[in-house]
Design a binder for these strands. Sequence first.
DNA 1: ATTAGGG
DNA 2: CCCTAAT
Length: 646
Amino acid sequence: MGTVVDTQVDGEKDNEESDFGNIGASNPVVYQLVRVEGDGRLVPATDDEVMEVEHLLDENKSGLASDEATKHFDGCVSNERLPSKNSDFEGLSQSENAEVDSQKLNARLEEERLRLSSESLIHSAKCMDVKCQTSDSCNETQACNDKLQPENTSMETAPSSMVLNGSCSALLRSAEACLGPANEVVTSMSSVSECTSSKPDFSILKGEICLDNLSIRELQEAFRATFGRQTSVKDKLWLKRRITMGLTNSCDVPTTSFVIKDNKVVHKEMKEEPSRLQLSQTEAGSMSTDQVTDATINNSQTLPSSPTDRTEDLQVSGKQLRKPFCEYDEKNENLQMEQFAGKRVRKPTRRYIEELSEFETRECTAKLLSSVKNSGHCQSSPKSRIRPVRDIGSQSISFSTRQDSLGGFGIQVPYVSRVRRGRPRKNFATLMKYHPSGIASNRVKKAPRIPAMQQNSEIGSRVRKARPLPMHTPQRNFVDEIGKRDAETINSDEEQDLRLEKFDAAGDNTDNNADTRPPLTGGVRRKHHRAWTLGEVLKLVDGVARYGAGRWSEIRRLAFASYSYRTSVDLKDKWRNLLRASLAQGPTDRGAKNSRKHTSIPIPAAILSRVRELAEMQSQTGIELGPSKITGRGGGIVQEKGSGFL
DNA sequence: ATTAGGG
DNA sequence: CCCTAAT
């Protein structure tokens, strides 16, 4: 059994990555492919083997997550005439003498530019054709999508098509767009693979530039070539963006059927629909390694999946596809600022967040939530009259939507799992700072929020909730969430709680779904006014009795475990009110069952009196109180209460 | 993050 | 309930 190994004859392995332009210059790296014979001899590899090894190389490198080199090559290859890819590739990787210097690179870029402008139309047309053929097989397409995400993975799977990456597929993108709403998450990969299969001739792709695969240095070169000036920017993404934009803009788009949107040449028709689609692809193209990892995992899951699982897979992939956006955006938005006078997304209020989570937890148990992330800059792009993407995923990705409660504008907001699988947004705090006012109040009142903004908000909010959660598999996580909640609900009961629960059952439990607030009343209600139910009050009182007034977080945790919506502040406020009420009612006046007008829940005098007592006690005694039972002298009422609930 | 208070 | 200040 001969093992094909990659022997590094000279230099260090990753040299190519860092010194693309220097290969063959001062420190030539020569790779020689050899085969290890059974006896250990090294035998020069045959051409076939070479090819094979290249494969392996790709795999290995990709596995290392630092596969810039690999990607790089791919990119270059794709840039070049694909048909001649092999020779080219060999030349580079083996670096026989590849004189790849900045000049060449520049030349390439220029070439690409020209080609882009002259061929883009044609290309896209072709691709579109291909696309259309494919469009009916969404599942497969979807599956392919997954491949695209992980650049590495894709390379393993489809060596020939792996070459294509985000930025090199502006055209593809447009083509894919043709697929229409049905293919929610179609990525360039899908189209790529399709194109590849149906059209072995890669010429249709050659016009593209894969900036993704270039090293920073090269990107800088490219930048210079594109803009005619040097740049010291080290940020890859920034460079890529800039370059892409420069290239895209520089090429005159021949027909009116194309529009330039967000640095991408887009076919007019799709301009409306697939806003998200483009985004995803764009992002996909520039996904960073961490995301790749994620996607890779997903990929492995997806590939073997049975048709039945498709839907789920789709959703999952959709989610993962999306998630990267957040991070990407966040990481780079600052950099992007100059380009897009991006409106910042207003962060949701905590209240809002909680409401959402409540809603989610209860209502959408079964749905896999797809995180919809429309990158802010895109949405905010002035020219883009892109509808909120809600209905795009008609096919498989289900966008559960909900009426926005805040503005009462009836805006449908795709809502997302609050489980964030990626790492938490870093800039969250930063963003907060930027819009203190915005966040501070959920009273968006007069200003109807743009759907996009809301969506973003949603994401952000989700983040907040999800951050603390451990990272699991998406599904797993979701389950956990639910499970946790249930557990809470169940565990919450302690002796009396059980009894108290009954009270709740009477009125309170309604709130679960009864969140339905008055539909579109002009006024923006803040938090849903959740009337305190008797049960809650009792719990509160009891909690105070147990843990002492003021220790609301405690009370909340222990006595209100099942009421996620009552915050410690709420408890405090309620207590204050109770106290006030009890005092107002007059100590003597315990007989009155319901002193109040039937507004909300009339609080039984018994409780009020007890409240009073508790308050008294606590104010006097140390805050330490024996659990319950302290109600001794309240009189009959107190006893009634005591027997009833304690 | 929790509490206390004012609104 | 919301918001803030003070812990």
